[in-house]
């Protein structure tokens, strides 16, 4: 009894989580004329791909999706490289003022994006960089959060490993690339997941800095689409459905690791 009640509750919860997605798929396949009808006149017989066709003819959708993908990948790669290098320096290369510099890094971690949005916008405008890929990417090249996270991981690598490499005549670059990086792979993976999701989902900064459709990312493109088609929900849902697909595929592959990363972040 208690067991079936439990399954009932868990199943009900799953339904609540899945229904909005399912409903988006159904709406995206509904003929334009009947979308606003309640209950919607949807049967597998009158299902249509018109919503998707409209989507593709009104905005450079594939380009926008491609923008989102490559910007997320580039931002993740940049952050992995810059953060792991800084993490190595903060963990392994003593120099005067290191503690103070690390404190400055940590301080930038606390400043939220909305504080930076106006001056960043001015900065980009001054150098004529609004409406460019560079402008979208720039604030995500380095990540103080990543430096913090990866520094902890580097510190946990036993020093004896580096020392053995030094005896073999390796310099810091080789120790970093061949000894430390392979050993902090789990932390790199965790950070990559956070970095990718943050870029993929980011909205406020692209909203401020991008005007032309060809440089837009998905969140911005979708919000714009909604502004244009306030009542054509089949088109808006078509866009939403297609935009979820890439992240869904990634998620299906990395699901265990994504969840483990998040779970771990709560266990201090």
């Amino acid at each position: 009894m208690a067991r079936s009640l439990k399954y009932l509750l868990v199943g009900l919860g799953a339904l609540v989580m899945l229904f909005p997605f399912a409903w988006a798929v159904i709406t995206s396949l509904t003929p334009a004329g009947t979308v606003l009808q309640t209950p919607p006149d949807f049967t597998p017989d009158n299902a249509t791909l018109d919503g998707y066709a409209r989507l593709l003819e009104t905005m450079p959708f594939w380009r926008i999706m491609f923008n989102s993908l490559w910007i997320a990948v580039a931002s993740t790669v940049f952050q992995l490289v810059t953060s792991s290098m800084a993490a190595y320096a903060f963990a392994r290369l003593p120099f005067p003022g290191r503690g103070a510099l690390f404190a400055v890094y940590l301080a930038t971690l606390m400043v939220p994006l909305q504080v930076l949005v106006v001056p960043l916008f001015i900065e980009m405008r001054t150098f004529n960089l609004t409406d460019t890929y560079f402008a979208v990417l720039a604030p995500t090249i380095a990540s103080a959060f990543g430096v913090f996270l990866l520094r902890q991981a580097v510190q946990q690598v036993p020093k004896e490993f580096d020392e053995a490499a030094v005896l073999d005549g390796a310099g810091h670059f080789r120790i970093f690339a061949l000894v430390v990086l392979p050993l902090i792979r789990p932390a790199l993976a965790t950070f990559a997941i956070f970095g990718f999701m943050a870029s993929w989902n980011s909205y406020l900064w692209p909203l401020v800095i991008i005007r032309s459709p060809e440089f837009m990312t998905l969140p911005l493109g979708l919000a714009n689409l909604h502004g244009q088609f306030t009542t054509e929900w089949n088109v808006v849902m078509a866009g939403s459905v297609v935009s979820v697909v890439p992240i869904l595929i990634l998620y299906l592959f990395a699901q265990k690791h994504v969840i483990a990363s998040v779970a771990q972040s709560g266990l201090k």
Binding site: V81, T82, S83, M85, A86, Y88, A89, L93, F95, L101, V104, Y105, T108, V111, V115, L116, V118, P119, L120, I122, E123, A138, P139, I141, A142, S143, A144, V147, G171, H172, F173, F176
Partner: peptide, 29 residues
């Protein structure tokens, strides 16, 4: 010193340009 700089500059320069300077700019504004 050069080694340290090479490890730090890739993160320090973007943080300076896209976080610290905007921070100051925001206070100034």
């Amino acid at each position: 010193a050069l080694t340290v700089a090479v490890f730090l500059l890739p993160s320090a320069v973007p943080l300076l340009l896209f976080t610290l300077i905007p921070m100051a700019g925001s206070l100034w504004t």
